[in-house]
């Protein structure tokens, strides 16, 4: 397979995943911000959202005051923000178009229709209301679900599929880790207060951002505890957005690639090491060693894997 094709598929998957993540974060944060101040709702919440989406610098460079409307505009629609939802979908479509023949009709249509509809939404943007935004965020989730479903159900299980899965899981791990990195203070054990803590709603918001609110109840069957939130998002293999679950997939798909190409390389070995680290970790050890440090190290390990995949396959 052409390296550029692999590269396009890899990035296509990353952009779709990122758009989906942004939509979820915006939705969860709006919900939190709409609560009275006493329950944790605050403008400062939006700074955190910018941080976890990695676009805080770009936002400040654009020079607008930090408030809900501006942040949402910037994250969802801004052409100047390279990783706004709008640009992610645009980039995903550009990548898809370049490798049109490597995609199935279903995948192409999911992206192309999503792109066309997004353009229609942009046209009607002047009259945007809160309700429109909700619709838009749901639309984004739907596009990424349709795309993902299309990939899952129609793509041949060959290197094209594996490259796009590797991209998806590296991006997903990055998103979850960034969210944790921004919110780690909230998850430290001394924050524990039963029931109506201020932070309760923050924890709930974190879980919502990764669609794990219900999952938490099923896994732990108890009220929200910050260390369990961290456990769920980092160490629980049954949770699809946890770091360990992402890496289980990354390792699996990188191995498939290595088998077809008849060669294990630095990317495989690094991914296995990261996966091993997660597997051998307990939630206690995690907090002892420092949650912040752990997540920070993971983010750079994950970025390094991205670079190794590039070096090994994409030139």
């Amino acid at each position: 397979m052409l390296s550029r094709t692999a590269d396009n598929l890899y990035w296509l998957a990353r952009y779709m995943e990122r758009a989906d993540f942004l939509a979820r974060v915006i939705k969860a944060s709006r919900r939190l911000a709409s609560l009275p101040k006493a329950y944790g709702g605050a403008e400062s919440e939006w700074e955190g959202v910018l941080l976890s989406s990695g676009s805080v610098q770009a936002f400040h460079a654009a020079g607008r005051p930090l408030n809900e409307a501006n942040v949402i505009e910037f994250l969802a629609f801004s052409p100047e923000n390279p990783s706004s939802i709008r640009n992610c979908i645009g980039q995903a479509r550009a990548n898809a178009r370049a490798v049109r023949t490597a995609l199935t009709v279903e995948m192409w249509e999911a992206i192309n229709d999503g792109y066309l509809e997004m353009q229609a939404i942009e046209q009607a943007r002047a009259a945007r209301s809160g309700e429109d935004l909700t619709r838009f965020l749901d639309f984004v989730k739907r596009v990424s679900l349709t795309y993902d479903g299309g990939a899952n159900r129609t793509m041949l299980r060959n290197d094209a599929y594996w490259f796009s899965r590797v991209g998806l899981f590296i991006e997903r791990a990055d998103n979850t880790a960034r969210l944790l990195d921004v919110k780690y203070q909230l998850l430290l054990p001394e924050k524990e207060v039963i029931g109506g803590s201020l932070d309760y709603f923050q924890w709930a918001a974190i879980l919502r951002a990764v669609s794990a609110h219900t999952a938490y109840q099923w896994v732990y069957r108890e009220s929200l505890k910050p260390w369990l939130v961290a456990d769920l998002l980092i160490l629980r293999p049954e949770m699809p957005r946890s770091l360990i679950s992402c890496y289980e997939s990354v390792v699996r798909y990188l191995d498939r690639l290595a088998n077809t190409h008849g060669r294990q390389g630095p990317a495989q070995s690094h991914a296995r090491a990261v996966y091993g680290k997660l597997e051998n970790m307990s939630v206690e050890a995690l907090f002892q060693g420092g949650l912040h440090e752990f997540v920070g190290a993971f983010i750079s390990d994950n970025a390094r894997l991205g670079a190794l995949v590039s070096d090994q396959y994409l030139f």
Partner: peptide, 13 residues
């Protein structure tokens, strides 16, 4: 790319 007057394409392999 070209190396020593031979054309190659970059593939994942």
């Amino acid at each position: 790319f070209v190396r020593d007057d031979v054309v190659y394409m970059r593939t994942t392999e």
